[in-house]
Structure formats: C-alpha cells, structure tokens
Amino acid sequence: MKIMTCPLNGPRNISEFVYGGQVKAMPDHQNVSDTDWAHHVFYEKNDVGIVLEWWMHSPSSFWFIAERHNATDEIIRTYPADQLFKQRVDFVANEGES
C-alpha cells in the first residue's frame, strides 16, 4: 500500500487522494494574451525530477501541496497550500463582457 501524508489527516492510503495537477504561477488574468493563457492552461513542466503538485484528500475535501519525484514516485513532503499562497485571487469579469 502506498502511503501519502495529508497535512490535515496524517498518513493515509494513496487511494484516498486525488491528483489535481502541477502547481503553476497564474498570469494576471486581466492583462494576459490568449496565447499566454493557453500556455498556462495546457502546458506543464516536463522535466524528470521533483515536481510541485496539487492533491486533495477526498473524504475531507482538503486541498494541499505535495513535492513528489515524478520518476521514482517518492513523496518528499506535503504541506498546506497557505504556505505557498498567501493571497486570495478574485476573478472579476471585465465591464461590458458577458
């Protein structure tokens, strides 16, 4: 059984977790070009090595961040998202757009 440590619930079977994609820096959504936004949405870092990822513990719906090696599958560490994200991003539709 592969174990992942949830920052909220402790060590659990990996089958209790859902993978949520790589952690990426989001461009300013108000001033970004379509191409840059497409890149943000569709492209991920593709090196072999340690990657920063979003994961969720499904029974508790708790989202957090994991550092994992994407070839050996070793989970280096996990921590709550607020260690990386200090500020809330609010999406406001531009005036006149529907």
Partner: peptide
C-alpha cells in the same frame, strides 16, 4: 494510472 509518472512500474491497486 490516477497520477502522472515517468516510470513503467505496475501497481497492485
């Protein structure tokens, strides 16, 4: 598999 990996290991689950 439920998450990405550059490894052709198989898994019991």
């Amino acid at each position: 598999d439920p998450y990405p990996l550059y490894n052709s290991r198989a898994s019991l689950p």
